[in-house]
Amino acid sequence: MTTAIKNLPRDEIVMAGNGACGGCPATAGLRIVGKAFGPNAICLMTPSCSVASIGLLPKSSFNYPILNICFAAAGSSAAGMEYALESMQKKGRLNGEKPLVFTWIGDGGTYDIGFQALSAAAERNDDFIHICYNNEAYSNTGVQRSGATPRFAATTTTPTGKQCDKKNLPLLMLDHHIPYLATASLAYPGDFYDKLVKAKNTKGFRYIELLAPCYTGWKFAAEDMIDISRKAVNCGAWLMFEAENGKIEFTNPTKKFVDGTATPDSPAEYLSMQGRYTSSLKGDNKEFVINSVASQIAADLQLLRQRSTC
């Protein structure tokens, strides 16, 4: 059973008056992370919106110890920190219980510039949690395309819409034979919380990817951030699953699409709510774009369905 909202812990690591945009999915996500991980954790951040929203030195908006690191260094820095903690604990030089090490990284630091070090850490099964908050673009620098930007979405470097598909990073990470992997949505905070707790209680390299709809990048109304998170899941543009030791289990509502007990909504509404698709959806192109997205979703579902049964 998914943890009910009223049973989520009271711990708050996001301080009021932080520097994030109103309606930011990253701070919304970090709040749940704090609830799941509790106080004994250390966070590493590569350049991203969350670093900008910490606020200017000497003030911080997050009640965790945070180390800012180089962009390509999420996997390597977290690994180095964990190795050091383990070594110091063995030598009796660590005060108190060994803290949980986790990274809070955007899609740039995960899919693109950070992928090499991340892949190496996953291959070594280093003992930390990598969380990717995926806003499907380099939002911090003003919304340029990333390896996570979906086809047809406009960014400042794909002004008429991206021509190629995004990488399937969750599956790429799964193929590193890691002990735990999950995808999550802000519309399902209890599910996200449960996945974080499961990750916390697993040893080795754990990967969690959160869809983080950025209203300034995706061009929708701020108040719709949770709603659009939900619609992404309901149309299958964002698939919800977890994998313990490589075994994929779907979580709802994706589970119903896989079971065949429900069909995904048409992506038409999800796409048309977002200004980043406006130019792709213009005129005669509209049908082609919607159909293309729908068939890509069907193909992604089919691929995952096959993977889950093998």
Partner: peptide, 28 residues
């Protein structure tokens, strides 16, 4: 839970207007 800034008190549901950015997610 949905407030991105945690400015709504869990018990009293009072909103901290000093820091609420007015995104409107709570209303939606």
């Amino acid at each position: 839970i949905y407030c991105p800034d945690g400015v709504i008190d869990r018990d009293s549901l009072e909103i901290n207007y000093s820091y609420c950015k007015g995104c409107g997610i709570c209303a939606k």
